[in-house]
Design a protein around this nucleic acid. Structure first.
Length: 340
DNA sequence: TAGGCCATCTGGTCCT
DNA sequence: AGGACCAGATGGCCTA
């Protein structure tokens, strides 16, 4: 599910949510002075850390049953302080670790289709989209065929939520060539369909809003319900899925793997046997609408097979050209390595 | 208001 | 002992 970007909290602000050894201390918004207090407290605790002794707990209550295992040490004041220090340090490390994880995820967001600073994909959707993207690109390399746009979108959006599906599809519909190589039917099968950088027809995308000199509206202004009209159980219809026949010889539509392929020349045939939750199956039909053509990104996208896609206030993909060239270069390198 | 997403805390486990 | 990693719990924020 996509959502508007929340007000970003600066790392310092995040760190201000200091640790507490009691649950009651959680999520208490605190100011900068309190952060300093926390540091002072930490230093104070560290100074006093060695003052006290290490007493073994001898006095288990008379009424309490004897416990097995190592004796529990008595929680003296010093021990409590050391415990607090340890916990605070551990919490800080854990925060940093999660921040690193989030940074990596943000990097991933930037290299999958449909990156936007204003409308972030959720973590889970980012991972799903990345998985589909990797798989799709791998398949393009493997087959040497460029998919048609609808098949490409379909492949990318497998298993994604409806809003994310609409978002990704909208981005690709607006600027398919940012992601899709030119159709090159004569391309030798052993060559990837893209030559980098740059390959013909590849251009950096500019959103309509930016082109018109207007700020791009946030993705959150989109109403997904009127972008795609999903019909459950209906297959591609007039659309010819690129991956049909490429991956699955029995005529069934392809299902992306639940896990990425091990290598670009790997065996994809097992994917069709992997279970996919029925809720993950999505098929689309596109309703025909004529947009008003208002400035700021209101228009009509024409899909293949005679169906159109209405997009209102849709902001396209921005700023991918360099990254995509880099990715293509890497993919080429991988491809040629695998050939050699 | 419910549900989704997220950041953080926390305790456990494993490893060095 | 201490750090990394993990999963559960908790509460805040946002949107439908």
């Amino acid at each position: 599910m996509t959502r508007a970007v929340r007000e970003e909290r600066a790392p310092s602000e995040l760190d201000e949510q200091q640790d507490s050894c009691s649950p009651a201390g959680k999520h208490t918004g605190r100011g900068g002075e309190e952060e300093e207090e926390e540091e002072d407290q930490l230093h104070h605790l560290e100074e006093n850390e060695e003052d006290d002794d290490d007493e073994e707990e001898e006095d288990i209550g008379e009424n309490k049953p004897k416990r097995r295992g190592p004796k529990k040490k008595k929680m003296t004041k010093a021990r409590m302080q050391r415990f607090k220090i340890r916990r605070m340090k551990a919490n800080a490390r854990e925060r940093n670790r999660m921040h690193g994880l989030n940074d990596a995820l943000e990097s991933l967001r930037k290299v999958v289709p449909c990156y936007s600073k204003t409308q972030k994909l959720s973590k889970i959707e980012t991972l799903r989209l990345a998985k589909n993207y990797i798989w799709t690109l791998s398949e393009i390399l493997r087959s040497g065929k460029a998919p048609d746009l609808m098949s490409f979108i379909h492949a990318l959006c497998k298993g994604l939520s409806q809003p994310t599906t609409n978002l990704v599809a909208g981005c690709l519909q607006l600027n398919p060539r940012t992601f899709l190589p030119e159709q090159t039917p004569d391309l030798p099968a052993h060559l990837p369909p893209t030559s980098v950088p740059p390959y013909p027809g590849h251009f950096p995308y500019q959103s309509p809003g930016l082109t018109a000199g207007l700020p791009s509206p946030p993705y959150g202004t989109m109403d997904p319900s009127h972008i795609f009209h999903q019909v459950k159980g209906q297959p591609f219809g007039p659309l010819e899925p690129f991956f049909d026949g490429v991956l699955v010889s029995d005529g069934s539509s392809f299902d992306p793997p639940l896990s990425p392929p091990l290598s670009i020349s790997g065996n994809f045939s097992s994917f069709k046997n992997e279970p996919v939750p029925s809720s993950d199956y999505k098929s689309f039909s596109f309703s025909v609408h004529c947009g008003g053509g208002a400035a700021g990104g209101h228009g009509t996208i024409y899909g293949s097979g005679g169906s159109n896609l209405q997009v209102e206030q849709l902001v396209g993909f921005d700023g991918h050209s360099h990254q995509e060239r880099m990715m293509n270069a890497q993919l080429n390198a991988i491809f040629h390595d695998s050939q050699g």
